[in-house]
């Protein structure tokens, strides 16, 4: 069982997502090389790196949106690398893209309907009502088309839409990007609440402060290679690593 509270607990929970030896190309450009990372059940793992370091591509490669040219993506032991996105989604990985990609012609309720998948035994099933409790703003605009929502509301809606698929692992690609400080704080609270629900989260971020609010462990990527891995507290203490891989 996932332990609320996460990293502080004694025995380490089992690994849910294990990526190893992952390579990806755009055309001839080699974008990811030998990427490896592990997210344990119920923890928030942050993937940190500068703009263009390969964070989004890692997310997309895990999701099958960029077909990996080599490597493994294991969810609970089963290798999903090379599968199609819908198979990966059905296996339990939920993807929240950086650009949000709300269906602007569809209402809030319809956006949620697109994401709906059958519940899983291990987690309490998400319903629109439960999601509106998590994102009260959305509940007040059920029939509003996605195109007429603010950036923050759209970001909430993409997360809610993905949660409707009852994922075990949530990929959040730079959720704080372009949001006002107030909304960013809300976002952090939301992520912590999802963690309390037992969800495992892989978060990509450039914003070290935001990452610090929610993350248990961190993995640092630079030029498509993993450079550093450890607890978030250790990264905060490691000024050299921060300067080398993260400072702009």
């Amino acid at each position: 069982m996932p332990e609320p509270g996460g990293a502080a607990a004694g025995a380490a929970p089992p690994v849910l997502l294990a990526v190893s030896g992952l390579h990806a190309h755009y055309g001839r450009a080699h974008i990811l090389s030998d990427v490896a990372l592990e997210a344990r059940q119920g923890e928030v793992l942050v993937l940190l790196g500068r703009n263009g370091a390969g964070k989004s591509t890692t997310m997309k490669a895990i999701m099958g949106l960029v077909p990996p040219s080599a490597g493994q993506v294991r969810l609970d032991g089963a290798d999903l690398a090379g599968q199609e996105p819908h198979v990966i989604a059905r296996a339990g990985i939920g993807y929240v893209p950086e650009e949000r990609r709300i269906f602007t012609d569809l209402t809030v309720m319809e956006n949620l309907a697109v994401g709906r998948r059958p519940p899983r035994a291990c987690l309490a099933p998400w319903t629109p009502e439960r999601l509106f409790a998590l994102f009260p703003n959305l509940g007040e605009m059920r029939n509003r088309p996605g195109g007429r929502m603010s950036g923050g509301e759209q970001q909430m809606l993409t997360i809610a839409r993905t949660l409707m698929g009852n994922p075990r692992l949530l990929l959040l690609d730079e959720p704080s990007e372009g949001l006002s400080p107030l909304i960013v704080e809300q976002m952090a609270n939301t992520i912590l609440q999802l963690k309390r629900e037992g969800l495992t989260v892989l978060l990509s971020e450039q914003n070290l402060h935001f990452a610090g609010l929610v993350s248990d462990r961190a993995t640092v990527i630079e030029q498509g290679r993993i450079r550093w891995s450890g607890t978030f507290a250790a990264l905060e203490a490691d000024a050299a690593a921060q300067a080398q891989y993260l400072s702009v």
Binding site: H86, R101, F103, D105, G115, R117
Partner: peptide, 13 residues
Amino acid sequence: AATQDREMVAALG
């Protein structure tokens, strides 16, 4: 939804 963004639809399963 697919008319607008079919890749996203696939990513939703």
